[in-house]
Design a protein around this nucleic acid. Structure first.
Length: 290
DNA sequence: ACCCAGGCGGGCG
DNA sequence: CGCCCGCATGGG
């Protein structure tokens, strides 16, 4: 039995905060299962369960999985533990407002998630709220995910559905999951990413080309494409502008004046350059928590 | 009962 | 182009 091989591993976690990162509005926020009491998170990746905890002082992460080697690698990659966060802070600390966000949410990292998972999550996120996004994602996982054993050997859970799992679904099936008007987008995305576009062959570093290609998917516009570029491909040049970021940027840097998206992108580019994705996450989180 | 929520595509001037 | 509108649905 696979459960008999259950293991735990420790990895050091300098300047990492699991809770802030989970709550940051990344794909894990939408499908992960975080327990505040134990400060631990359960999620699935690549069809396997990962349980990561950050007890006590938080210097060490505890990773439990039926495949601990996979899971430790997955955790380090997902939470970008190799990023030198202090260096990034130095780069994006341009004013009091963002410094305040950094101090409040120190250790929050931009996550690096599976491109398809990120695409589906952020298609669902449009014109929606976190609670309902979680509900819809959970319904889709229950209906279309594959069963996998829990790492603790107690029961099974379901993996995040692949595009192939979803192409058989018709719009009505998807509507039953609460997807609403997004059903047709999901349907197209699943089909397009199966037959026309291999998300795993896109160049993560070519920001403009990456974004343009992603926007070929119905339901993926400027904002969602930036979310995918940032959190699905790790392109820190991406700066997703949603209503929170827009308001925040206008108030902070444009004296409260209404600005066009292009102008806001330009300012983010000038101000934070190759790390604007990190700046975006701190501004977004501060704005949403206030 | 209302009103809102991490946009998007389509239609129109 | 740029602007404006409708959109499914659960929760506050």
């Amino acid at each position: 039995m696979i459960y008999e091989q259950l293991q735990a591993a420790k990895i050091s976690s300098p300047l990492f905060d699991l809770r802030h990162t989970f709550e940051s509005g990344c794909p894990l926020t939408f499908h992960g299962d975080y327990d505040r009491n134990t400060n631990s998170l359960i999620y699935t990746a690549d069809g396997r369960m990962v349980n990561v905890g950050q007890p006590g002082e938080g210097k060490t992460l505890m990773v439990v999985s039926s495949d601990v080697k996979f899971a430790t690698h997955e955790v380090a990659r997902r939470f970008r533990l190799a990023d030198d966060l202090n260096k990034i802070y130095k780069r994006i600390s341009t004013d009091d407002h963002i410094n305040d966000a950094i101090n409040k949410y120190k250790g929050m990292r931009v996550t690096l998630n599976d491109p398809w998972e990120t695409t589906l999550c952020f298609i669902i996120s449009q014109f929606n709220n976190v609670k309902r996004i979680r509900l819809i994602v959970k319904n889709l996982i229950d209906a279309y995910g594959s069963e996998i054993p829990a790492a603790d050997g107690k029961g099974v859970l379901k993996s995040f559905p692949r595009p192939e799992n979803l192409i058989a679904a018709n719009a009505k099936d998807l509507m039953k999951c609460g997807t609403g008007f997004r059903a047709k987008y999901i349907q197209h995305a699943a089909e397009y990413c199966t037959n026309n576009l291999d998300l795993y062959k896109l160049n993560p570093g070519k920001y403009e080309a990456l974004k343009e290609t992603l926007m070929e998917i119905n339901g993926v516009g400027d904002k969602v494409a930036d979310c995918i570029a940032l959190m699905g491909y790790g392109n820190l040049n991406a700066f997703p502008i949603d209503v929170h970021i827009k308001r925040s940027m206008e108030n902070l840097y444009f004296k409260g004046k209404k600005m066009k998206m292009g102008k806001i992108h330009d300012l983010a580019d000038d101000r934070w350059g190759n790390f604007q994705g990190y700046a975006n996450q701190y501004l977004f989180h501060k704005e949403r928590m206030s």
